[in-house]
Amino acid sequence: MRFLITGATGFVGSNILRYLVKKNYSPHVFIRKTSNLWRIKDLVSKITLYKVDLTENELLNRTVRKIKPQVIFHLANAPLYQGRPALVKSYLDANLLGTINMIASCKDLDYQCFVNTGSSAEYGLKNKPMREDNYCQPLSLYAITKLAATNYASYIGKIDRKPIITFRLFSPFGAFDDPKRLVTETIYNALDNKQIFLSNSNLVRDYLYMEDVVDAYIKAIDKAQKYQGEIFNIGSGRQISIGKTVKAILKLSASKSKIKWGKLEPRHFESYVWEADLSKTKKCLSWKPRYSFEEGLTETINWFRENKQIYRGRVRTFR
């Protein structure tokens, strides 16, 4: 089976790539000229890399026709962590135009599955678990462009009867997570017993261990044809407060770190309700998380103990 992955140098993409390489596949990977390969540098000899900008239609179309992928995992995006926005054009190019061009490049191929990667941020603030048929009210340019990409992917999937589905990811965590994210920063500093600055302990996330995220993408391969244009939540279905998250990390890592609440400003779109309704996902994809939050944290902390040097100079520390 021929796999093509965009965004494979990112957190989720690199973990999917590792899974496929472990299963003896040789995935094809699109990267930008400016991509940092720190997450996948040990895999370069086992994959086929292409420097392809998704806004360069001619090169993109020619390369996709050459590969003839059967499964496409589209994860390329301009992310938003800690409220630090990329340039407006970066969001439009990576999140929306890149998705439109990627789908168009596969138009004449007889592929089995195309997973577009969306975000729970598309929903905006809600007062109950988020369902795929909720009215979306995104509160950032990142979320606006991700929602537009999701709507386009759903439109093409349904109108052209293509096996395109979208995963709205909630809050994955695990190996090779982004250095700026809460779980990464907290574990990294906790292992050195350093003090940790945070915002509001009552804010919440729906955390999902990365092994379960990868499992969802693999499950999609045999389901996309049946659910053309559909959207699926990928989360744990259980929200947890930042306070409880940090407390669990300190306990599982046996850390003596001191937590300084209120030292950071919360993002304007933070919420006290952020939870995935997994009813549709469980029913249609026959998927549900296998790891509890505590089990995933334990695995992640153990991974960080062995790979902490990778993050040296990348993670914020506090004095």
Rank of each mutant, 00 (worst) to 15 (best):
T6I: 04
G13M: 05
S14T: 10
N15C: 07
I16M: 15
R18I: 08
R18H: 13
L20S: 04
V21G: 08
K22A: 15
N24L: 09
N24P: 02
I31F: 10
K33E: 15
L37D: 04
L43S: 00
V44F: 07
S45F: 06
Y50T: 10
Y50C: 08
D53P: 07
N57D: 14
E58D: 14
L59I: 13
K66L: 13
K68L: 12
Q70L: 14
N77E: 15
A78V: 04
Q82Y: 13
L87F: 13
S90R: 13
D93Y: 12
A94T: 03
A94V: 02
N95E: 11
G98Q: 08
N101H: 14
M102P: 03
S105E: 04
D110H: 02
F114L: 15
V115A: 04
G118W: 06
G118N: 05
S120Y: 11
K126H: 14
K126C: 12
P129F: 01
P129A: 03
E132W: 06
S140L: 10
Y142C: 02
I144Y: 11
T150V: 12
N151M: 08
N151V: 03
N151A: 04
S154W: 03
G157R: 09
P163Q: 09
I165M: 02
I165S: 01
F167M: 07
P172D: 05
F173S: 05
A175I: 09
D177C: 00
D178K: 06
L182Q: 06
V183H: 01
V183T: 09
T186P: 09
Y188E: 10
N189A: 00
Q195N: 10
I196R: 02
I196S: 03
N200C: 14
D206N: 01
D206E: 01
M210K: 03
E211C: 06
D215G: 02
I218N: 02
K223I: 01
A224R: 01
Y227I: 01
Y227E: 00
Q228E: 15
G229T: 08
F232A: 03
N233D: 12
I234G: 01
I242N: 15
A248G: 08
L250V: 14
L252T: 11
I259F: 10
K260R: 13
W261N: 11
G262S: 07
R267V: 15
F269S: 05
E270Q: 11
S271V: 07
S271R: 13
A276G: 14
L278W: 06
S279A: 14
S279P: 05
C284V: 08
S286E: 15
K288C: 06
F293L: 14
G296Q: 03
G296T: 05
E299A: 12
N302T: 11
N307E: 09
Q309C: 11
I310V: 14
R312Y: 06
R314L: 15
V315K: 08
T317P: 07
